[in-house]
Amino acid sequence: MIATIALKELRSLFAAPSTWLILGVLQFIFAWFFLARLDAFLQVQSQLAQLASAPGATQAIAVPLFGAAALIMMLLVPVFTMRMIAEERRNQTMTLLATAPVSSTQIVLGKFIALLLFLLPIIASCLLMVLALGADTQLDNGLLLGNALGLLLLAASYAALGLYVSSLTAQPAVAAIAALAALFGLWLVEASATDNDSAWRLLAPTSHFESFNLGLLNSGDVVYFLLFCATFLLLAIRRLDNNRVYG
């Protein structure tokens, strides 16, 4: 049943021309950024070669690329999560799901998995661009995979938050703005925390992504992301259940 819902969501995502437009523009931005970094790296490569422990191609190109992708995810994910539940409610199609023999958990998980499957190729495209360098240079595969995993976890937690916000309203635009505000707020929490060990920093997903970005695979960060996703998915499920009770 989860698969049925996920498949339907994916189909309607890809049925919209705007999705393809956004994906195209996104790929263009990523490619531009990638080439700019590559260009910069090539210019300073000869000087770097004289340093004892010089940053490699992965560190000079992939790390900033994934850092930029993480920032773009913050703007991108709310655009796709906003419709997921709010639009169902506005078009009164929620009744179809509510009267079908599926639980709220299945509905939320179906939509969440559809979002992940949709975000996966975006992350994969970043990864593939960097891997294309592998033909001519030595890549740090560990760092690269760590970054991709971090980006995936970050995008998943943004998606979970976006889904929850979408379940609160019947207006997709409100859902998008509210989700963006929440994500931006979390980012500001991190940015405003001057102290590096501040507890505030631990709140923000971006600070946990940073360790992935630097190549640190910390189980605490993984647990943080999983908890973040689980919390907001559970809240969304509860919200849908309450819908049946409060109307």
Partner: peptide, 15 residues
Amino acid sequence: RIGFLPETPPLYRDM
């Protein structure tokens, strides 16, 4: 075991 048609048909316009 139920089929339900609400007052506003629950239709996905893009399908």
